[in-house]
Write a protein that binds this DNA or RNA. Structure first.
Lengths: 256, 256
DNA sequence: ACCGGCGTTCGACATACACGAACATTTACG
DNA sequence: CGTAAATGTTCGTGTATGTCGAACGCCGGT
């Protein structure tokens, strides 16, 4: 949740309750929503019909659901991310070279990592990572890569806001450890994440930087830990990442 | 725009004005938005801070923009489309076989066609088609394929709502022509669209149907008209489409 | 035909939103 | 460094408007 507004518009909070309910409960009727959020039917009706007019929800034969307009807006927001278009072809090329692992591109927003593009591996392992998903920054490969190039004050404010929650026994949970690792990332140019979020899974990532070292995002290779542990594999993958990043950064500075 | 609500919640209409403004104008400040939508700064401020609290917008150093939460919600809505997960692997396989053309999957919503997945061709032609985008149903390949399996009354209500606007000289603009073509599509099992929306571009599509012939969506192959005109190419591509559709439909009926 | 459930409409009240002015904060410029 | 302009934020007030409950109409089931 974002910072508290001093005088929030209550109608928007009510709307949010209703949208969340629709999000969680598929095919919701006016009465069902009204009961769950504990409000008169008439109120829910007025909100839903307004949201329908605005095309945020659609009414399929009596039950409401969120419309695909959310996807439209979402994709437009994504396309507006500065390097999105430059990154896509390189990410595809990378995926072509590594058909056994998942590759992805992520950016930071409000202290979390958001995956903007995910290309699944051709193996039958389906990771539950999808475009749009948010992850904690301190135990994600791309997150640590991005964090490594943030000013220290920003790092602290992110820690303050989200904490360093533990997901596995390998998760970094103290500021000191994290700062130390970020220093290492700055030296290597790549970040490693071995089972810090999901046991058995590993990610190698590299940040994409502007000429003055502001992080724009990060690209990652994710796979089962056993695929990624051998030192020569680690260095091969790291080099592949860095070469793609290099191309993206060159194209980026070339157009400004 | 959806059907008019009798008693719309005005606060939501105001919110929409502000969100649309943010959508159109990158990096908008409170004052700038207030001037454009002609309202007091204080009002815009209250709305934006509420929207920030709800994480629909973020405040990067003073200027607001839509957040990536829209992407998150949008992708979840998309993933909820019944055959989305079954369709993806087949669409990828199709794209692999046809590296020179764009392939896509679309569904109908409120009388328009919405692209849910777009895999660009490996050629350097970049179509401006992206996930989430909406298209008129009567001059899109997938749209006509889906329309062919709708009850006649539904077809009429869609025509009534959206009309049959002309985009090129080849666009179908009369109900009679359309109905005739839909009959043909039902016979072939595939639909063709040659320059009806964008001159010089062509699409071949096939509908995905439930066992009782309810259309769930359509998959398409799109490319320059010159690639797709030869009769043998036309039939090869049609067959490829139909074989993928077959697999998807089998998997679909297999899990219910 | 009756009953129960659901969506919808409507009038009335109290509240919460819209407004403008004033205050705080940042930026621009001499 | 100091002043001015522009922007973001706070706040009191009147009234428009969201909230509520009750009643109506519609449909499907028994």
């Amino acid at each position: 949740m974002g910072p508290q507004a001093n005088r929030p518009i209550k109608a928007l909070l009510t709307m949010e309750e209703i949208l969340n309910d629709l999000h969680e409960n598929e095919g919701a009727t006016v009465t069902a929503v009204a009961e769950r959020i504990d409000r008169p039917k008439s109120v829910v009706h007025d909100y839903l019909s307004t949201l329908e007019q605005l095309e945020y929800v659609v009414n399929d034969d009596g039950s409401y659901r969120l419309s695909l307009r959310w996807l439209d807006r979402g994709c437009k927001v994504r396309d507006r991310v500065s390097i999105y278009d430059l990154m896509i072809p390189e990410l595809r090329r990378l995926a072509g070279e590594l058909s056994n692992e998942m590759v992805s591109f992520a950016v930071e927003e409000e202290g979390s990592v958001v995956a903007l593009e995910v290309i699944q591996s051709r193996e039958d392992i389906e990771y539950e990572t999808n475009a749009g998903m948010r992850f904690p920054i301190h135990c994600s490969g791309a997150g640590k890569a991005i964090l490594a190039y943030q000013p220290e004050e920003r790092i602290d404010s992110i820690i303050e806001r989200h904490g360093l929650p533990e997901f596995t026994e390998k998760t970094i949970t103290t500021r000191e450890e994290l700062v130390e690792e970020l220093e290492e990332i700055r030296q290597n140019g790549v970040s490693y994440e071995y089972g810090e979020y999901h046991s058995g899974m590993a990610t190698i990532s590299a940040p994409i930087l502007t000429p003055d070292d502001t992080p724009l995002g990060g690209i990652s290779i994710t796979g089962p830990e056993r695929h990624m542990s051998e030192p020569e594999v680690k260095s091969t993958l790291s080099n592949k990442l860095l070469s793609k990043v290099n191309i993206i950064e060159l194209n980026y500075s070339g157009r400004n």
